[in-house]
Write a protein that binds this DNA or RNA. Structure first.
Length: 763
DNA sequence: GTCGATTATCTTTTT
DNA sequence: GATAATCGAC
């Protein structure tokens, strides 16, 4: 045990060894949060305070859950498979599979990912003749998800006006359609579980009794429903059930846009009568200048619980800031700089390039590709989201649950088999009249269309029959054959990649089967609690099995694999083993760390993003995002912005991000001359100053050749009333008439001014 | 009904 | 710039 607690600092040690009461750990970036969580679990088990089965540990991402399991296995000689460590969604899925009858779901219920959900809604609107101009599918989707994230059913939502009443009605319709098809969306997984446990006392008490310790990672990211869910699991603020050990950092709350509520942290402190509040402020990751930058930046936020990171690592190198004239130059510069780092001995995998939105990766990827530097992009399109994979999955879904209309529509005519829009419309009408799924409605359609449809049904039934006793990978293989997906892509010109992906799907199935223990005889769960896999009374007279053990006991391999495909979209490219540079959004970088980090596109409108600029809370969230980005870096941090950038297929001119001006001067080193904000009175052009030689050299390299024109697009200007701006477009002039300029003044928006009249100063 | 081509739309982050 | 939706020709 000494080993376990060895090397913990006093705060970490205190947190790990807290008594079995609810506790809140404020863990700053790089303060050893995951370490504290896993060590806590290991310590609880090793000191015999709880069995592995009495632990419930919740994370938000699959990555975090996996990390926790790996570290735990390294600390303790136990089999972690079957332990209740996972994402909210994953754990709820497991519960619902085990108790699907009580939850009112078919055993083969399927999970809609957000793409599926959106097309589901589009279909719903069309089927009910709703004008999707007036009720855009996305609006409805946000409405439904928002309500569910607060734990509200349609009947519980207050509607103030006609528009909202209509949305509520559609929400209700949506839910009943989901029920009919046997599908659930992400939020539904949580809401169903919550409702199940609220209403079913024996079940609730069983789990409350069982989970003596509930540990929550990234608590600041919980939404209202997740918090209610935790309260239910813990039973009246932990009085009846287990103790809740919540770890979070309000400064890293970056998911408010999808319902996360930082207020849950103070609510938790109050409602769980938290007496143990521990702050982890010692940072083990970043050098001083980097940490100072993060600290000073985040102080610009008003709503904080208050926390400051410190380090013993010394100041280290200053934070470098670079201004480029275009996104392409930005990318080229990054690559030059990265090459230097690599030449000096840095691993490529220790260099990360971060950006605010996925669209920004294109230019950088292109440059990396040209420079022949291996790289890996996280996010973007993932394995299970690829079209060909979705198609294959849809066939499997239909075999497992034929009432899933989304799956039906996706593949009924793919590859084409002569079933067109008309016949499907007909089929849809029948299905609606009879209140059955499209699949079930097939026998009611007569004629030529009817027989093509019947053939499709035969195909699915045949595949199901043929594969019923085969292992999952074999099943997938056969489905690829009989669906004609393989032959279809063989004849297609660009089909080679897709076939390769389909083959990878078979490998994914093989891997899944062995990882989840579906190829073993007995459930893999081992440990003192396995005997607790008792039968218990569900309250409706049925004897049911606790959702205790590993997946194999509560669902079929196919159902499990399909959930896996929805819940874990899978990595996009598995060039594992290669030492490659890391590209990702700031959001997906959370929880990771690198020796060197480039934060790119630090421009107004991009970072902070324009969609967030409307409200102050939006900007504060962006600032927290920036805080997260900065604290990813261990030794070296580069911040970069560009005067122009291609976005949506057209060039945009942005001003540098306000965040750059919120950093402590003494920790920064500007590689290009810094143009002071106008209120400091410095109105020289960035390219006309030469503070130091290195900067001058770089400036020369990037200097634009055509400086002759008095006004040019991209010119920074200052206006007496509107302040600092940048010329976006010029028109008129050409000898006659007056020259007019469109100028982006940031806060004041876009203005068109006559250059002969307006008093503009170049800066 | 099918295919290819054009047009519209939309681009923040993710389980 | 990329994809989905729509349109028009066979």
């Amino acid at each position: 045990m000494q080993n376990l607690l060895h090397n913990l600092n006093p705060e970490q040690l205190a947190a790990v060894t807290l008594p079995a009461q609810s506790a809140l750990i404020l863990a700053g970036a790089g303060s050893g949060k995951t370490r504290v969580l896993t060590t806590r679990i290991a310590w609880l088990i090793q000191t015999g305070q709880v069995s592995p089965g009495g632990i419930l540990a919740v994370t938000f991402t699959n990555k975090a859950a996996k990390e926790m399991l790996t570290r735990l296995s390294a600390m303790l000689p136990i089999n972690t498979r079957g332990m209740w460590i996972g994402t909210f969604h994953g754990l709820c899925n497991r519960l619902l599979r085990a108790h699907h009858r009580d939850a009112g779901l078919p055993s083969t219920f399927q999970i809609l990912d957000s793409g599926d959900q959106l097309s589901f809604i589009k279909r719903l609107l069309k089927a009910n003749n709703i004008d999707d101009e007036k009720f855009p599918p996305k609006t409805l989707m946000y409405f439904i998800n928002g309500a569910k994230d607060q734990g509200l059913r349609a009947a519980q939502v207050d509607a103030y006006d006609d528009f909202n009443r209509k949305l509520v009605g559609l929400y209700d319709l949506y839910d009943s359609q989901c029920q009919r098809e046997g599908v659930v969306d992400f939020a539904e997984l949580l809401l169903r579980t919550y409702e199940l446990l609220s209403r079913n006392q024996p079940l609730r008490e069983h789990y409350q009794d069982r989970f003596r310790h509930i540990l929550v990672d990234e608590f600041q990211d919980t939404n209202d429903l997740q918090y209610k869910w935790l309260k239910l699991m813990a039973g009246e603020g932990g009085k009846k059930g287990g103790a809740v050990f919540a770890v979070g950092d309000d400064d890293q709350s970056i998911y408010a846009f999808r319902g996360a509520n930082v207020g849950n942290m103070s609510a938790f402190e109050r409602e769980f009568q938290v007496q143990n509040l521990i702050k982890l402020e010692q940072n083990y990751r970043s050098h001083g200048h980097i940490l100072d930058s993060a600290n000073v930046l985040i102080e610009h936020n008003s709503k904080r619980l208050g926390k400051n990171l410190r380090t013993d690592a010394g100041h280290g190198e200053p934070v470098r800031i670079m201004e480029s004239s275009s996104d392409i130059q930005e990318a080229n510069w990054i690559i030059e700089e990265a090459k230097n780092l690599i030449r000096e001995g840095s691993l490529r995998s220790e260099i990360a390039i971060l950006y605010r939105s996925n669209a920004q990766s294109r230019v950088i990827e292109h440059a990396l590709f040209t420079a022949n530097i291996p790289y890996r992009v996280y996010g973007g399109q993932r394995f299970f989201e690829r079209a060909e994979i979705k198609h294959a999955i849809a066939y499997l879904q239909l075999m497992d649950n034929p009432h899933n209309d989304s799956a039906f529509l996706r593949v009924v005519n793919f590859p084409t088999r002569g079933i067109g829009a008309r016949s499907l419309e007909q089929l849809q009408d029948v299905a609606r009249q009879q209140n059955i799924s499209m699949y079930a409605a097939v026998p009611y359609v007569a004629g030529k269309a009817g027989s093509s449809l019947a053939n499709f049904v035969k195909l699915i039934e045949g595949a199901r029959f043929e594969t019923q006793n085969l292992p999952l990978p074999e099943m997938v293989k056969i489905v690829l054959e009989v669906s004609c997906l393989l032959t279809h892509y063989q004849t297609e010109k660009e089909g080679a990649d897709r076939i390769e992906n389909l083959e990878q799907l078979v490998s994914a199935a093989t891997l899944f089967v062995s990882e989840e223990g579906f190829n073993k005889e007995a459930p893999a769960f081992a440990g003192p609690a396995s005997s607790a896999a008792v039968l218990l009374d569900s309250g409706n007279g049925d004897q049911i099995i606790d959702a205790d053990a590993a997946l194999p006991t509560v669902m079929s391999p196919l159902s499990a694999f399909l959930s896996h495909a929805s819940l874990e979209a899978g990595d996009n490219q598995a060039q594992a083993g290669q030492d490659a540079m890391q590209l990702m959004t700031v959001h997906s970088a959370k929880g990771l760390e690198f020796d060197a980090v480039f934060i790119t596109g630090l421009e107004e409108g991009l970072f902070p993003h324009e969609n967030s600029a409307q409200e102050e809370s939006g900007v504060e969230e962006e600032r927290r995002l920036m805080y997260v980005a900065i604290t990813r870096a261990r030794k070296r941090l580069y911040l970069s912005f560009s005067q122009t950038r291609m976005l949506h297929g057209q060039t945009r001119y942005n001003m540098r991000s306000r965040f750059l001006d919120e950093l402590p001067e003494e920790s920064l080193k500007w590689l290009t001359p810094r143009v002071q904000p106008t209120w400091f009175g410095n109105k020289k052009s960035a390219w006309d100053e030469a503070p130091d030689d290195a900067a001058n050299r770089i400036a020369q390299t990037f200097k634009k050749s055509d400086n002759s024109m008095s006004w040019r697009i991209g010119q920074n200007v200052e206006h007496a009333k509107f302040g600092e701006g940048v010329i976006v477009n010029l028109n008129g002039g050409g000898g006659s008439g007056s020259l007019r300029a469109q100028i982006n003044f940031g806060k004041f928006g876009m203005k068109e001014l006559d250059l002969s009249v307006a008093k503009l100063e170049k800066i």
